[in-house]
């Protein structure tokens, strides 16, 4: 991966200050996305994937959330020090974002055309007529039939898959450099999921952009991602090339995730799963966050947080690899 770096996130910490105390939802996450690269972020519910994505967009609700430290460099510019007005020029134009639930992600009271045109008019100096043509073109590009009619539809007149296509058209209408897709297929039927993933791949190649895709589904990662981050309770547990991770998972949690994918050959066997659930993490949390559920834990895991260790081309946060450095 010697290509030009588009996004560089360094030691990002996003905390939520709730009545029950401080929640370190994202706690020291670092990664890069090169031009044309697709990064997958996996991890179970509540591990901080969406918060990572929203931190990049600077869309963390404050209060209760706050990006407490770190740096997010996009095209060599620091996003964390940008003014709101400057950030708005990046959102929707240089970084597009799509969300999990297409049924609720579009405003029910405006036509899909109006919603796409709005994005165009914010970022480009064009008149309504031109914007409308571009919107129709965008709808055609994401595979919506007779877009010149569909543009006047309201979201409720479309199916879930169609709406997700509209979301993609809206996110891509200004040809962003980066698309952040937060579980774009989770809410869809399996057949539609594959179509949407293919669409994202096609769009990526066509617009020559980078993609950050968040998912629970390792199948999605295998299908689309060049590199992967495995997150757990706000921490990066493993980070490396997708191929490496699937052929040689390092972290016990990653292994557990891979083992819990059902395969045809295991017919009759029970599906393996990782016992337990995410710990309630506080600021003074000691030790490895996965220790409770880890099958390879040792005493040290409960007292000392493992650092991120480089193994071959990957990074892993586990004491197991410490002496092998």
């Amino acid at each position: 991966m010697n290509r030009e770096i588009l996004l560089e996130v360094n030691d990002l910490k996003t905390y939520f200050y709730t009545v029950d105390g401080v929640v370190p939802a994202v706690d020291g996450v670092s990664f890069t996305i090169s031009k044309g690269e697709t990064l997958g972020i996996v991890g179970e519910s509540g591990s901080g994937k969406s918060v990572t994505a929203r931190s990049i967009m600077r869309l963390i609700p404050n209060p209760p959330g706050k990006i407490v430290s770190g740096s997010i460099k996009f095209k060599d510019e620091e996003l964390l020090t940008k003014k709101d007005s400057e950030m708005r020029m990046i959102r929707g134009s240089k970084i597009g974002m799509i969300f999990q639930d297409p049924m609720t992600s579009l405003n029910p009271l405006f036509t899909v055309g109006d919603q796409i045109i709005e994005a165009l008019c914010i970022h480009q100096n064009i008149d309504k007529k031109e914007a409308k043509e571009k919107a129709i073109e965008a709808l055609r590009m994401v595979g919506i039939p007779s877009p010149e009619k569909r543009i006047n539809n309201y979201p409720h007149q479309m199916s879930g898959g169609m709406r997700q296509r509209v979301m993609i058209a809206m996110a891509l209408v200004c040809s962003p450099d980066l698309l952040i897709a937060d579980e774009p297929t989770t809410a869809l039927d399996v057949t539609i999921q594959a179509q949407i993933l293919d669409l994202i791949k096609d769009m990526k190649n066509m617009l020559n952009m980078s993609v950050m895709i968040i998912t629970h589904d390792l199948g999605v990662v295998a299908d689309i991602a060049d590199s992967v981050i495995v997150m757990y309770a706000g921490k990066m547990m493993e980070y490396g090339r997708a191929f490496d991770m699937f052929s040689n998972p390092l972290h016990p949690y990653t292994k557990g995730l891979l083992d819990s994918i059902p395969t045809l050959s295991m017919e009759g066997d029970r599906l393996k799963s990782i016992e337990g659930s995410l710990p309630n993490v506080t600021l003074d949390y000691k030790g490895c966050r996965f220790a409770d559920r880890c099958s390879e834990r040792c005493e040290k895991c409960f007292v000392e947080e493992p650092p991120l260790i480089k193994v071959n081309d990957s990074y892993v946060r586990c004491h197991k690899y410490l002496n092998r450095r």
Binding site: M57, L59, D84, R88, M89, I90, R91, G92, S93, G96, M97, F99, D101, T104, S105, L106, N107, P108, L109, F110, E118, A119, I122, H123, M167, M170, A171
Partner: peptide, 26 residues
């Protein structure tokens, strides 16, 4: 707190317009 408000913000819509157009109409 609805998702489409987040979508509007992610498009780069000004907060004022988010509230006066997208939220208020709903």
């Amino acid at each position: 707190h609805q998702d489409y408000i987040q979508t509007a913000r992610a498009k780069g819509v000004k907060e004022k317009i988010v509230i006066l157009k997208h939220a208020l109409k709903n």
